[in-house]
Structures are given as C-alpha cells and as structure tokens.
C-alpha cells in the first residue's frame, strides 16, 4: 500500500512537488495495523474474560439453588444450612438505610442544584460531598463502631449497620440528585416561574418529575452498591444473625448476604461451606444484576428511541 506512493503509479503527485521530508517509510502504517489488532484483541479478550469469570460463578451456583436454601436458617456445624436470615437482613438493612439516606440526599442535592447561591459556601458543601464520596467504606465502619458501639453502647446491630450504610450512600445520592435536577432544561423552570409558581412548587411539580428517571436510576445504582457492601456491615452489624427468620428487631445483629459469603468462605467450619459460598455468590450476583438491570432496561430503550 505504502510503497506505491513512491512507485510508478503516482508520478504526477511526486513530480509536482519534491518531498522535503525524505522518504516516507511504512513503519507508521504497519504500527497502525498492529495497534488496531492489539486494541481489538485486548478489548474483546479482557471484557470476555471478566464476564466469563462472573458467568462461571453464576453457573456454579444457580443450578444448585433450592428454595429452602433461600429461606432456611444457617447452620454452624451441620450440612444443609441456608441463607434465609442473611438474605432477609440484606433487604431489611438496605431498606432502612435508603429510608434514612434518600430524603437527606435528595434535599442536599436540591440545595446544591437550586438554592445555593454560587459562592464560597456552596463550594465548601460540594467539596464535603465529594470528600465524603471518596471516603473508603471501611472508614464508615470505624465511624459506626465509634458512634454506636462505643458512644451509644448499642453493640453490633441492624440499626447501627443501616445508619452507617446510609452515611455511605449519602454523598452518592446527593450528587445524583444535583446532576439530575441540573439536567432539566432551564426553559422548563422559567416557564413554571412565569406562571407564578413558588420555588417549592416548581421543584415539586416540574423539576423532580422531569428528573425522575435520572433519580430512579441513581437510587438503584446506590442500592445495588449498598446491597453488596460488606466492610461497613461487618464492623457495625456483625457477622452473626439472630438465627430466626423475619426478625424485624432493629437491635438484632445484622449479618447480610455479602458478609455471610465472606464468613462461610473464610471463617466457617461447616463441611459444606464451599457449596454454600458458591450458591450465596450466585444469589448475590443475581440480585445485584437484577437491581441494576431492571431499572436500566427502560432507560436504554428510551435512549434508543430518542436517538433514532
């Protein structure tokens, strides 16, 4: 390809203007081809590799699942224990933490997007939100211990775990709210104000409904992350359950599914720990994917529709 420019086929181009850059060699063109091949190879291989590993985990666990495994009580010594209380705690803890963090996160996000005058204070709040979002989850765990175990003396409980988890969710929810609200076209906002609405009415009747799809996706992403979170829970809610199903007591120990997976894999002495871990992993991945997928599919379809 390359050599032909210097060959006989392009007499005219060559004779019009002498080259001053010397002969153009083929190395850059060869590089281009190699580079393209390498990038394609790596791109496809790495993504397939990671997906393949996760698929393998699902494949190892899902076929062995039984309903009784999902709701029966775990056993410390004998085979055949289930994950019932841990699974329940996962949802229970998640629900409590979201009940606490969503209103605060929404309000703080709305403050940043709508009320805050553009001055030093808002910059400060925003730095705090960003700072908080960068805090490693284990720090929230240590904070939870210092607060609930040491200061309030309530020990390792569902309540302590849920509040610590709520703190972890807060910055994410705040940022998502701010971004979603900001993405609403300013014309819509002005239209509402022009009709004589107060700021609150505008937010409630115009901004939040328009931003709703972004908010819902964001909340689901947060929920998915919180559902799989383990470091915070280990430190603040412990690695045991009360051992009964449907235990709504906020002061029970609150081991969740993610923690249980770690526990059976590293600490437990039951003979079928390996199989429990396989099954628990597949349940965990399955639920997290479900939380992520269910709320994204409509968005993808929507995006596809608006694009075409």
């Amino acid at each position: 390809m390359n050599g032909s420019m210097n060959g006989s086929t392009n007499e005219a181009l060559r004779s019009e203007a002498p080259y001053s850059f010397g002969k153009r060699n083929g190395s850059s063109a060869v590089f281009d081809k190699i580079f393209t091949a390498v990038v394609w190879g790596i791109g496809i291989l790495v993504i397939l590799f990671i997906c393949g590993l996760l698929f393998m985990l699902l494949k190892n666990g899902l076929p062995k699942l039984t309903w009784s495994f999902l709701y029966s009580i775990p056993s410390e010594i004998e085979e055949g224990g289930g994950i019932g209380p841990a699974l329940f705690n996962s949802f229970y803890l998640l629900a409590i933490s979201l009940v606490i963090s969503i209103p605060i996160g929404l309000a703080a996000g709305i403050y940043l997007a709508e009320f805050a005058p553009d001055n030093k204070l808002i910059g400060f709040v925003r730095i705090c939100v960003e700072g908080l979002s960068s805090v490693p989850s284990i720090i929230f765990g240590l904070f939870g211990i210092a607060l609930f175990v040491e200061m309030f003396q309530i020990g390792l409980t569902i309540l302590g775990g849920a509040i610590s988890l709520a703190f972890l969710n807060l910055p994410m929810l705040t940022r998502i709210t701010e971004e979603s609200i900001r993405s609403v076209p300013v014309e819509m906002k002005n239209a509402s104000f022009a009709l004589g609405s107060t700021h609150l009415q505008t937010i409630r009747k115009v901004l939040v409904p328009v931003a709703l799809s972004g908010l819902v996706t964001g909340i689901c992403l947060t929920a998915g992350r919180a559902f799989g979170e383990s470091a915070v829970i280990i430190l603040t809610a412990g690695v045991t359950t009360s051992g009964v199903m449907w235990d709504f007591n906020l002061f029970s120990p609150g081991e969740t599914l993610a923690v249980h997976l770690w526990y059976v894999q590293s600490e437990a002495i039951v003979p079928d720990a390996g199989e429990i871990a396989q099954k628990a992993t597949s349940v965990l991945i399955f639920i997290v994917l479900l939380i992520n997928l269910v709320f994204r599919v409509p968005l993808w379809l929507n995006a596809r529709k608006t694009r075409s």
Binding site: G43, I47, I50, C51, L53, L54, L57, L221, G224, R225, F227, G228, E229, S230, A231, A258, V259, L261, W262, Q265, S266, G274, A277, T281, L284, I285, V288, L289, I291, N292, L293, R296, W300
Partner: peptide, 22 residues
Amino acid sequence: LRPVLDLLVGIPSVVYGYLGLT
C-alpha cells in the same frame, strides 16, 4: 459493551474477593 462495563462496576467487592480466592 458500555452497559456491560457499567454492570461490572456494580458487582460487589466480596464477589471479586471470592473469585480471587477460589
């Protein structure tokens, strides 16, 4: 691929640990 990568971001870290371990 983009949504697939987005989904991977959401996989719990304990699952990755389990993957590494086993």
